[in-house]
Design a binder for these strands. Sequence first.
DNA 1: CTGTTAGCGCATTCAC
DNA 2: GTGAATGCGCTAACAG
Lengths: 333, 333
Amino acid sequence: MGKRRSTIADVARAAGVSIMTVSRAVNGRPGVGDGTRDKVRSIAEALGYRPDRRASALASRSSTALGIVFPDMANPFFAILAKAATDTARARGLNVFVMNTDESPTRELSAFASLHEERIEGIIVAGSRLSPSKLGTALEAFADVVLVNNSTTGPNIANVDVDDRSGMIQAVTHLLAKGCTRIAFAAGPRVSVSAQRRLAGYRTALVGGGLAFDRRRVVKCTPDIEGGRRAAAAILELDPDVDAIIAYNDITAIGVMRGLADAGRRIPEDVAVIGTDDIPYAALVRPSLSTLRVDIPLLGHTAMSVLLALRDGTPLAPMAALEPELVVRESSG
Amino acid sequence: MGKRRSTIADVARAAGVSIMTVSRAVNGRPGVGDGTRDKVRSIAEALGYRPDRRASALASRSSTALGIVFPDMANPFFAILAKAATDTARARGLNVFVMNTDESPTRELSAFASLHEERIEGIIVAGSRLSPSKLGTALEAFADVVLVNNSTTGPNIANVDVDDRSGMIQAVTHLLAKGCTRIAFAAGPRVSVSAQRRLAGYRTALVGGGLAFDRRRVVKCTPDIEGGRRAAAAILELDPDVDAIIAYNDITAIGVMRGLADAGRRIPEDVAVIGTDDIPYAALVRPSLSTLRVDIPLLGHTAMSVLLALRDGTPLAPMAALEPELVVRESSG
DNA sequence: CTGTTAGCGCATTCAC
DNA sequence: GTGAATGCGCTAACAG
């Protein structure tokens, strides 16, 4: 099987020109006559020549691949975000390494290491599970970084955020208006910045509404359906008369609803539930889930656009955080 | 900012050894004394040295990255599949390029081109939207290929399949037992092999059950929620008395249920609905969705294991197709 | 407009 | 057990 891929040298030989001419012609660089360019291109085509991006990256000291790192691809929020981001990159002819960390800080670090070993220079990190200092250190390996929902800063770091505090204030205000007084919070991972922000917003709104903040009403949980289910059970144990639960995100909220149903609570009559993100399934579960809507594809597209701008050296105007919008459905209706 | 990354040469200089010794020590190859290896490693560590995988791949003519291509990352089936597959690869120290094709054959081709340009040698393709001949041709660029739910064969191709026919027969049999006689089918993309197999199974089971196959009861649709919604409307137009709809996959089925609800049909009293895959949300939507369960993480893990075996040259026993299992829930209960 | 020289960071293949 | 020479496929920086 002499299935050796043809290289730029093969094309040059077949076309009777130098390697550099082929390089210029194939990459659409100036400095080649029209006739030569067309001839070289058709020969390249005939030979099935495809440039080797690794070699080209090595020689030019600049990669055409990017990376995106997030905790859980099975969470539609991150899947949709990544899809939008990679689509945006692809439109520019850039490939992206998608790295799933399974909620593990260790694996997040190893994802960064892998990306660095591929000499990826620009990455998006969504929902980091690392402490700001560890994250900042790890990020030094990259030229351009966009952080989604994380406030860590640095000379090479841009931030794209959702206004979590504002969202939570909307949610709590809505529940207060409904007459809820025992509002619990199913918090996400302690290390998640958005989890912290959401918790802070919850607390602020509670106090602003004249209710006491009671840390016993805050239950930490893993950010998946099962984690939400367990959180609901824990909350009911601490306060059997709880009348509302706000969850860190939609999949957690869906789990909370399951846990509530397991315990025989009616939603929203006994306990109202509100999530965050508005993943597509929020509207489809039973009961349908009230949530704080975020335009997830826009978020992903924005993050990648900012990364591309960073890469291009385009100056960036500081960005306002995306404003979530409360969508009231059955779970709090 | 003299932030140049340290290279193997820097480590060699600092350690007072040759480049080759560093290479061997860092990669754990034999031919280095224990003392030398430890010394080199600690110096490499201190310098923050990370091997450049592109350069290493270029020199060794073998890549440590793999690829996975599928139509829609927002579909939990593919997201979970990809997550399992990448996790399995990561455990072996291999990175993977995740490529989303947005259901477009053109973009699928361009995904293959990108992967080839990165000189990726092993890929998984799930749910290809290309004709067998075009797919076969495109796949020649790769040394090792695993096809999920696609019967295209080739010298370098292994197949991992779900037994779609068997699944559909289970579904139809179940509906017949319930007394359904006007069973429609919301078919996926014509170019999808599993869509074809599922349709064939539906047809076989129908005829086997003594019912006529009526092609007017088969409505093609895009494999997303909206596609399912429109398919339901189309089916109701063609046969207002339809009493069951089987859908190509779960997200389509969820859309079908929405369409049915929009038209005022009760599920399952008026129309029963059955999906395929058992994505996590199938159990959570209203009404909960009967479906053909597939162990999606196992499927992804298996596909990657087969790819790794191919890569290693390990001989493979021919694999039986994964058997889906009918899960009866409210939508057909 | 086109070609030549040098080298990106690393591994292979030999020497010693 | 260790090192020197050579080249992977490509591009930057010049030369013509």
